[in-house]
Design a protein around this nucleic acid. Structure first.
Lengths: 201, 201
DNA sequence: TAATTTTAGTTAACAGTGTTAACAAAAGTA
DNA sequence: TACTTTTGTTAACACTGTTAACTAAAATTA
């Protein structure tokens, strides 16, 4: 019975082509411009077929949100493995986070801008939990090898992520499309302060 | 010639009533739900009259963005004046910033979320420059009374604002409508680290 | 006061958006 | 071949921001 398998495969390909067309649209004109109709146009099908593969537009966005968090998690893990000292890992991960945000601006804006509007949804995105898990683990390792091993790791993780997201989003708001390398000084400044307070205290 | 004056007054009142109706709509159903039609309905006029007072919907949003930055600036100035030490001022302002964000969630989300999409616009909002000016001045005062008076104040201002915005927006994303007072620990943690690095170095 | 101009406000439409019900055509099964 | 299921289409609904064309009222001028 290869027919059923072929159908599943075709369905998967169809789904992928929808996402591909959507992503192309996003890359050329941004999230705000993405519409079901444009996707339907691009794949040369009528509008309702898209609803056979995705419950609604939000489901399509959710797919990209997951993809984004997965990519970010991968990027963090990769640089983390280049270091053994937790503090060095945190610093490298901070730079990787920054680089990801500006190299994949579209992903980042969806992940932390348009997406995640509802409250319960946050914990439903496994990919996000995965990413934050990497951060939390590293924070815990840093605390474990510090003088005060009783430091609240969750508080520190929250601080770490907040600093990173704050730096990125303020930079994204102020200047669009400027890959100002000098701005990494700000990242370096903020993150080294954080790491100091984590390792010294 | 009181007629012309009365007309100007009426026009101003009309404009105010549009903003009032819009704000009511935002308070009840959020920014996403705001529409020109609903405003027109609320003030019991037809749709095009709104375009006699505002160029487009964005202009209405811009009005609230300005209002928001003005309110934030006021809040910062008020708490700043309760202290003389720049470091104490920065700490108090951080708390005021946090409080403003969650007491005026609608304003904050517009100011840093929907609004300011274009690049040039940032410097066109005088109210925003005013607010950041207050922050920058205080940072400069803190640096002036520190050991290293050569510290880059603009870098430190950027870091300060980024930490605040990061904390607020991460908190806003994760939990909607939870006034968790424990979360102020994170603010305290991050901001005291920043102030330390500002005054000690 | 009467005629004219200016202003204020309306209706109706255009060009979009997400979403879905009703139907036709193709594909698979008996 | 006849029947059932899947697949895809057309057409519509209920919205959105925005604007052109028109009418009624107000203010100005002769």
């Amino acid at each position: 019975m290869g027919i059923a398998e072929r159908k599943i495969r075709q369905k998967e390909e169809f789904r992928a082509s929808i996402l591909e067309a959507a992503w192309l649209q996003v890359l050329t004109d941004g999230w705000q411009s993405l519409s079901i109709r444009k996707i339907a146009d691009a794949i040369e099908y009528s509008i309702p077929v898209i609803y056979n593969h995705f419950e609604n537009k939000e489901a399509i966005l959710l797919e990209f949100t997951k993809e984004g968090f997965q990519k970010l998690a991968d990027a963090l893990l990769e640089v983390k493995n280049n270091y053994t000292e937790p503090s060095a890992q945190l610093e490298a991960m901070a730079h990787a986070y920054w680089d990801f945000a500006f190299e994949h601006k579209e992903y980042y804006q969806l992940m932390f801008g348009l997406g995640i509007p509802a409250c319960e949804m946050v914990n439903q995105i496994a990919e996000m939990k995965h990413m934050t898990g990497i951060m939390i683990t590293t924070i815990q390792e840093a605390i474990a090898s510090s003088k005060d091993t009783e430091t609240n790791y969750f508080l520190k993780y929250h601080t770490y992520l907040s600093i990173l997201h704050g730096l990125v989003s303020i930079e994204m708001i102020q200047k669009v499309g400027k890959p100002d390398p000098e701005k990494k000084l700000i990242l370096q400044d903020a993150i080294s302060g954080f790491i100091k307070s984590l390792t010294i205290n």
